[in-house]
Amino acid sequence: MKTLHILNKSPKHAFPASQCARFYSQHDSILLIEDAVYYTLPTTYPLFLAITELRALPTKPTIYALKEDIDARGISETTPNDVKLVTYEGFVELTASHDKSASWY
C-alpha cells in the first residue's frame, strides 16, 4: 500500500525528513508543506536528497511541494525541476491516490 509522507518542518529539523526516508516503501511519495518547502532552495535541496536517499532506494520517491506555501514564502523562482508543485486541490488528490498519509514533524 502506498503512503504519502507529509513533511512540515524547516530544514533546521533533520529528524522528520530522515524518518520519512527510513519508512519509505516503493511507490510512496513525499509532500513538502509549510516550512518544509524551504527544502526546495538550491542550498537545502541537496541536503534533502542526501537525507532521503540514505538507504539507496530502488526507486526515487516523487517529491511534491505545496504551491501556496512556496509562493507565500517568496521562493517560487528556485523550485528544483524534479519537485512537482501542487495546489491544495492537488494535495487532496495525493491523499486520495495514496492509501494513507504519515505526517512527520
Binding site: 500500500m1 503512503t3 527510513r22 519508512f23 519509505y24 516503501s25 494513507k100 498519509s101 504519515a102 505526517s103 512527520w104 514533524y105
Partner: peptide, 13 residues
C-alpha cells in the same frame, strides 16, 4: 518499520 507502515490501514504520528 517501512513494512509496518506499508501494511497499516492508518497511521497516527
Amino acid at each position: 518499520m517501512a513494512d509496518m507502515l506499508a501494511n497499516a490501514t492508518h497511521t497516527l504520528n
